[in-house]
Amino acid sequence: MLRSAFSAAVFCAVLSATSAVAQTTPAAGQPAAPAAVAPSRPITPPAETQRLLRKRNVVVLDVRTPEEFATGHLAGAQNLNFRDPNFPTQLAALDTTKTYVLYCASGNRSGKAAVLMQEKGFRKLVNAGAFKDLKAAGMKTE
């Protein structure tokens, strides 16, 4: 009985390891899986973002470069350049209890910025995505 239980445990372990390898190893002729992608937050639809912007105590952060920001931005947005080496330091100056709506050119930088902010203790974060999409949805710009 003990031998049978041991054999079953070994079989399950081998089966599990084989399954894990099968999931990570591409089949013959198939491309390898891409390298790990940096975590990001999903993009919130413009209509939901617009509703959120009507609430009080919501801070809008444009995480594009100052040059991108100068070409147009959401009304009242603050520019906090994600690519600036001091970005993490600048985050430390923000109030972690407020709600932050972040956007950039595509939603990529704002998603990564939101993850970084979450790691630093921010809890109310929205990745609003691309500026061009927010503008096209009729949000007020400057």
Score class of each variant (00 low, 15 high):
residue 1 M to I: 14
residue 2 L to C: 11
residue 2 L to E: 14
residue 3 R to M: 07
residue 4 S to Q: 15
residue 5 A to D: 06
residue 5 A to Y: 10
residue 6 F to L: 15
residue 10 V to Q: 00
residue 11 F to C: 06
residue 12 C to V: 01
residue 14 V to L: 02
residue 16 S to L: 01
residue 18 T to G: 15
residue 19 S to F: 03
residue 21 V to T: 04
residue 21 V to D: 01
residue 22 A to N: 07
residue 23 Q to F: 11
residue 24 T to P: 01
residue 25 T to A: 14
residue 25 T to W: 14
residue 27 A to W: 09
residue 30 Q to G: 01
residue 32 A to C: 10
residue 32 A to M: 11
residue 34 P to Y: 04
residue 35 A to H: 10
residue 36 A to T: 13
residue 38 A to D: 13
residue 39 P to S: 03
residue 40 S to D: 01
residue 41 R to S: 06
residue 45 P to S: 13
residue 47 A to S: 15
residue 51 R to I: 04
residue 52 L to I: 14
residue 53 L to H: 09
residue 54 R to M: 12
residue 54 R to W: 03
residue 57 N to W: 06
residue 59 V to I: 14
residue 60 V to R: 05
residue 63 V to I: 07
residue 66 P to V: 02
residue 69 F to D: 07
residue 70 A to R: 15
residue 70 A to T: 11
residue 76 G to H: 12
residue 76 G to W: 09
residue 79 N to Q: 15
residue 80 L to R: 04
residue 81 N to V: 07
residue 81 N to K: 06
residue 82 F to T: 07
residue 83 R to H: 10
residue 84 D to C: 02
residue 86 N to L: 12
residue 87 F to G: 05
residue 88 P to W: 06
residue 90 Q to G: 01
residue 91 L to C: 11
residue 92 A to D: 13
residue 94 L to R: 13
residue 96 T to E: 04
residue 96 T to H: 10
residue 98 K to C: 06
residue 98 K to W: 04
residue 98 K to E: 08
residue 99 T to N: 02
residue 99 T to I: 02
residue 100 Y to R: 10
residue 101 V to W: 07
residue 101 V to I: 09
residue 101 V to R: 10
residue 102 L to P: 06
residue 103 Y to P: 08
residue 104 C to F: 05
residue 106 S to D: 08
residue 108 N to L: 12
residue 108 N to D: 13
residue 109 R to G: 05
residue 109 R to H: 04
residue 110 S to W: 10
residue 110 S to M: 09
residue 111 G to N: 04
residue 112 K to Y: 01
residue 112 K to F: 00
residue 113 A to P: 01
residue 113 A to M: 02
residue 113 A to Y: 03
residue 114 A to L: 08
residue 115 V to H: 11
residue 115 V to D: 10
residue 117 M to N: 04
residue 117 M to P: 02
residue 120 K to W: 02
residue 120 K to D: 05
residue 122 F to P: 06
residue 123 R to M: 04
residue 124 K to H: 15
residue 124 K to G: 01
residue 125 L to E: 02
residue 125 L to Y: 01
residue 126 V to T: 14
residue 126 V to L: 01
residue 127 N to V: 07
residue 130 A to G: 12
residue 130 A to E: 03
residue 131 F to A: 07
residue 133 D to Q: 12
residue 133 D to K: 12
residue 134 L to P: 04
residue 134 L to G: 03
residue 138 G to A: 12
residue 139 M to C: 05
residue 140 K to A: 14
residue 141 T to D: 12
residue 142 E to P: 15
